[in-house]
């Protein structure tokens, strides 16, 4: 299957007065196959949006190569068959939903009102077509954003945080639309923090941290291996720190301890340790490995300092 996106050692370097040259994206090797939903994950400031901007030709790479639908990035012909939904998009507030589609359509030379109407129907905004954007809720604005991104019938969609700040119903609606895109044979490149959403809809993912790709592959392969979650109450803090380890996720709050260990680890030893500390065990639950676990394993260790600052209760 041909690659919809391919980057070879793609790098973006910025000059900082205090830190000198910084590689915001560092030698990025990424492959996204046609027709798949690809999740691009990473903590804030990891380089996700910079990568998308480079792929869209909005900013120029400092080094390396990048190809979108077989053409070099920045090729204006590619822009006819791709689309982009930015994070928290803004649309001219005085325009109606229909006028927004007319405006974005005009940038492609498309003036087909029937098409605009059908796009509005598709995103459940047909009844609100004559309302101005200022009257739209966040979810409606996101849906009009998706409608504008479909105007040119794109082969490849870039969606930056498509469900950020939306309520659960809007989440479901957006997720369903994205799944429909895959059924129509489109490639979808999603940058997101919503790991549970990504896990539900993506075929493959890449995790970027500090500009470097840490993991990349099929979700099934990356999430191989179940985990066991042990919850205990009345645990002294000294005992909690004993469980820290490279593949163990420990969180501790108000004397409640949650230890998340790999399936093969010694569960009995953990339970014995807790009993010795006179802790009461609440539950021992075996569960499938989640994307969140993979994400924390990949990024958490390297950003440990940051995690402690953000959540003082997390001890590892």
């Amino acid at each position: 299957m041909p690659a919809a996106i391919e980057t070879i050692q793609l790098t973006k370097t910025y000059k900082s007065r205090s830190l000198g040259l910084i590689n915001v994206v560092d030698k990025l090797d990424l492959t996204v196959q046609e027709g798949e939903i690809f999740g691009f994950l990473g903590p804030n400031g990891a380089g996700k949006t910079t990568t998308i901007k480079m792929l869209l030709g909005i900013i120029n790479p400092s080094a390396g190569e990048g190809y979108v639908l077989g053409k070099e990035i920045g090729d204006l012909n590619v822009h006819k068959v791709i689309s982009y939904l930015p994070e928290r998009p803004y649309y001219y507030e005085y325009m109606t939903g229909m006028e927004i589609l007319k405006f974005y359509g005009s940038l492609f030379g498309i003036r087909d009102e029937k098409k605009f109407q059908s796009l509005l129907e598709r995103v459940n905004l047909a009844g609100d077509a004559s309302k101005i954007i200022a009257q739209y809720s966040k979810g409606m604005q996101q849906r009009i954003g998706l409608a504008q991104s479909l105007i040119n019938d794109p082969k490849l969609l870039f969606l930056d945080e498509p469900t950020a700040g939306l309520d659960p119903i809007a989440h479901t609606e957006i997720r369903d639309l994205i799944l429909q895109f895959r059924n129509e044979g489109r490639t979808v490149f999603i940058s997101s923090h919503e790991l549970s959403e990504v896990e539900r809809i993506c075929d493959r993912v890449a995790i970027i941290n500090k500009g470097v790709i840490e993991r990349q592959g099929h979700l099934d392969e990356l999430l191989k291996g179940a985990r066991i979650e042990i919850i205990a109450d009345d645990v002294p803090k000294e005992t909690a720190t004993k469980f820290e380890g490279p593949d163990t996720i420990v969180s501790y709050s108000s004397n409640r301890l949650i230890v998340d260990i790999p399936e093969g680890a010694n569960v009995g030893a953990v339970i014995d340790e807790l009993r010795n500390a006179k802790a009461s065990i609440v539950s021992v639950i075996p569960r499938r490995r989640r994307l969140e676990d993979l994400f924390v394993e990949t990024v958490g260790g390297k950003n440990a300092k940051k995690l402690v600052v953000e959540s003082p209760e997390v001890v590892a």
């Binding site: 869209l56 030709g57 204006l76 689309s83 982009y84 939904l85 930015p86 998009p89 803004y90 954003g145």
Partner: peptide
Amino acid sequence: RTIYTILSKPV
């Protein structure tokens, strides 16, 4: 960020 949506089109 309006500029990004516009510049991602053939403009």
